[in-house]
Amino acid sequence: MITIAFIKKEIMETWRTRKILILVIVFFIFGILNPLTAKLTPELLKMSLKTTIPFPDPTSLDSWLQFYKNISQMGLYLFAIIFSGTMSHELAKGSLTNLLTKGLQRRVVIFSKGFVLFGQWLLSIGLCFIVTLGYTHYYFPDNKSPHIWLALWPLFIFGLLLVSLLLFTSTMINNNFGGLLGTVIVMIIFNLINLYKGAVNYNPISLVSKNLTIVKDDTKFFDLWPSMCITVGLAIGLLYLTVKLFDRKKL
């Protein structure tokens, strides 16, 4: 009951601070940019190189390539920027003190924040996906990308890790940049791990970088099982650590 009340409070907050509005606008823009970039790149190359070599016409695959590139290189970090101070902001303002001294369990705060954050991740990715899907169907009516729905799942699963990472770092570091910093550092570490080729299928970053191969070939989805399990495991571990850390935190 109290959890539901706190979830409502979180939803109200994301509405009042206009965070949800910014998310919707930004990811809508990304959704439009994907097919546009796919469509214009060959034209721009033609104009700037002034050659008569025929470029291959863009296909729906190019549009989805842009989608996964934009999400993993921009969208992810924008999400981190927007929710970078989700815990540290409240701790700094002291807005939780009253509730916690009146008997609100600390883990309820973490869980409801995580729940609402993940909901917003689903919303942003879903919106961007639907916009890209609509335009891609309109501009590139081919069947070169048969498994777009399946390729979306790893992104959702990666969101679990991103959300718990944001919660953990913004609880740990008393600074509005904490969440962003944590996300950037962890992404760098994942990228470094990827230098070792054998680790690719175990690396959580494959969930946001290997999607295009799934779009082309659905059997590739099952190669990513280990990485999905590790991602979920890491997310749960981080969430547990966050609860422990927050329990010991002085208000």
Partner: peptide, 25 residues
Amino acid sequence: MNNAQLLLDNLPLLIPLVILEFGLM
């Protein structure tokens, strides 16, 4: 394809894009 036609072709993409980006700005 000339420039005008290129622009016309992509209008369904460009109009909402410009509105949203300028709106945010």
